[in-house]
Every structure is written in structure tokens, then in C-alpha cells.
């Protein structure tokens, strides 16, 4: 399969490849700069495309055929054996809940949710999961794009691509290496117009697009974030970016200080 793309080669041999597609309920844009041929990039894109869909097959809670959906359906009534990948993902999410003082929480969509719901998600060392309460619902949507960025990073590294810009839905962006003639990748925030230079870093944004939007809830008090506002964070890890952009948006000063100890935060931008 050849995905839509634009390919250019300069007289000096540098080549640029841009491709775009939809995945994870959003858009994905990939730009590579190297000296490779068009077919190389097409194959590379296919690898990335395939990997993203593998991740979706495991952890997309909106698709009833995925592994996470099976967990959501069954883990309250029986222990469910899960793959190593989902196990690692869930473990990371639970740890992130601790590290963010409970502000990052994958159980907020559960019926009768409270700040302690996540404590009822039991992971055993032999990769089994069990819910201590009925109607727990795990939603990894706020986490997967960052995870996908990390996985794409690995694929690119293996392929020898050092200069790339990866965009997952505008809210999760990874800049590797640099644009030609620049240090890093210069990215502008749509809301504030602020310019961010990404040097092997991720820029992750959470917030509301409009005053009508209510989709981010504080797990500690059940109150939705209101108003048109957002928070962006620059991190070296895509996963940490996803965790932090939401948690920092909800955090008070004390909680922010706590997170500053737990994570390597390079920059926070409010807009």
C-alpha cells in the first residue's frame, strides 16, 4: 500500500518526504528529511502505519475488538490474561497516576468513578488484570498518541532517519534532528502564536478548543476544565508529555512542584 505523500529531491541529493493519514481518531503527519529514495520512505511509512494500527488493536477502547475492550468487558468478573505490551502500558499509566498526585487517571470514564477507582485495578506479575469493582472502564486515549510517538521514534532510529517531524493530531508532536538550516524544528502554537523549537523533543498540548468544550475532568474533585484554555509541555518523552499536559492543566501549585520532581519538564506554555 502506498499512502498519499509528497516527495521532493534537491539537486544536492537531499530528499524530503511528507505523508499523512488518519489513525487513532485523529490525523497523523510525518515529514522525513534524508537522502533516501521515495520507495524507501514509502516502506518506512508503511512500517509506521502498521505499528500505529497494532497499537490501536491493543489499546483503543472505542473498538470492541481490541484487547483493552476485552479487559473492560471481562476484568470485573474474571482475571484476564493480557499481552506484555498492554501490561507495560497499564503499568506505566498506574505509575503515572501516582506521580501526578492522581491527576492523570485512565479510569475517569468508569461508572461511579471516584479518585480511588484506579486503586481497584489490579495487575499481577504474571500479566493478569482484575477489577476490584464492577463497571471500571479503562480509557488510554490520552496516553496512546505519546506512546505512538515513542514507537515511531524507535522505527526511525532503526531506519537511520535522524531528521523528522511527527505530528499526531496537532496535540502530540515529536521533532527529531532538525530542519535544513535550522537548529531543531520550529513549531508554532495555533492559539498563542508562540514559537517552540523542538530538538529531539515532544510538544504535547491538552485543553479546550472552545468555551463549549468539556472533556477534561479533574479526577480528584470531578470538576471539568472550563473555558478556552490549553497547556503545552515540552518533554523528551512522548508518554510523559501526554501524562503531564493533562495533569499540569489540572494541578495546583503544590501538585506542580511535586510533578516537577517526578518528571523532566523542559518547558510549560499556557495559552
Amino acid at each position: 500500500m502506498v499512502l498519499p505523500h509528497v516527495f521532493q529531491k534537491s539537486p544536492s541529493g537531499e530528499s524530503l518526504y511528507y505523508t499523512w493519514f488518519s489513525a487513532m481518531h485523529t490525523r497523523v503527519d510525518l515529514i522525513f528529511i534524508s537522502r533516501e529514495a521515495e520507495s524507501f520512505y514509502s516502506n518506512l511509512t508503511n512500517l509506521i502505519h502498521k505499528r500505529i494500527f497494532e497499537i490501536e488493536q491493543i489499546a483503543n477502547c472505542f473498538n470492541p475488538k481490541t484487547e483493552i475492550s476485552e479487559v473492560n468487558r471481562s476484568a470485573a468478573s474474571r482475571k484476564v490474561k493480557i499481552t506484555e505490551e498492554l501490561y507495560q502500558l497499564l503499568q506505566c499509566c498506574i505509575q503515572s497516576n501516582f506521580k501526578t498526585c492522581g491527576l492523570f487517571d485512565i479510569t475517569t470514564d468508569s461508572k461511579n468513578f471516584s479518585s480511588t477507582t484506579i486503586s481497584q485495578v489490579a495487575l499481577s506479575e504474571d500479566r493478569e488484570i482484575f477489577f476490584g469493582l464492577p463497571d471500571i472502564y479503562l480509557n488510554l486515549s490520552g496516553f496512546l498518541k505519546g506512546y505512538a510517538l515513542e514507537e515511531i521514534h524507535i522505527i526511525l532510529k532503526n531506519a537511520g532517519i535522524h531528521d523528522a517531524l511527527i505530528n499526531m493530531g496537532n496535540s502530540s508532536i515529536l521533532g527529531l534532528g532538525h530542519q535544513i538550516g535550522h537548529t531543531g524544528w520550529s513549531v508554532k502554537l495555533q492559539n498563542s502564536g508562540e514559537e517552540i523549537i523542538l530538538e529531539n523533543e515532544c510538544l504535547t498540548t491538552s485543553g479546550n478548543n472552545s468555551v463549549q468544550q468539556l472533556h477534561i475532568v479533574n479526577p480528584l474533585n470531578g470538576i471539568f476544565v472550563t473555558g478556552k484554555r490549553s497547556l503545552s509541555v515540552v518533554t523528551t518523552s512522548g508518554i510523559e508529555g501526554e501524562v503531564l499536559s493533562t495533569a499540569l492543566l489540572l494541578a495546583n501549585n503544590f501538585q506542580r512542584q511535586q510533578m516537577a520532581h517526578e518528571f523532566q519538564i523542559k518547558r510549560i506554555i499556557h495559552s
Binding site: P4, F21, N170, N208
Partner: peptide, 30 residues
């Protein structure tokens, strides 16, 4: 399916001339 992002297309157009500006697309989720 989906359109190429205008900001990325702009960047490609600039690539030939080696003149890069910032790419205005980052924000809350598309």
C-alpha cells in the same frame, strides 16, 4: 481521507528555497 496539513505543505514549498518559518499547527487535538 484527510487533507494534507496546509502548514506542512507550506513547509514543503519553503524547503526548495531553504527558507523555513515556524509551522503553525500545534494545539489541542485535531
Amino acid at each position: 481521507d484527510i487533507d494534507p496539513a496546509p502548514a506542512f505543505l507550506q513547509m514543503i514549498n519553503e524547503w526548495e528555497n531553504k527558507v523555513f518559518g515556524s509551522i503553525p499547527f500545534a494545539g489541542t487535538s485535531w
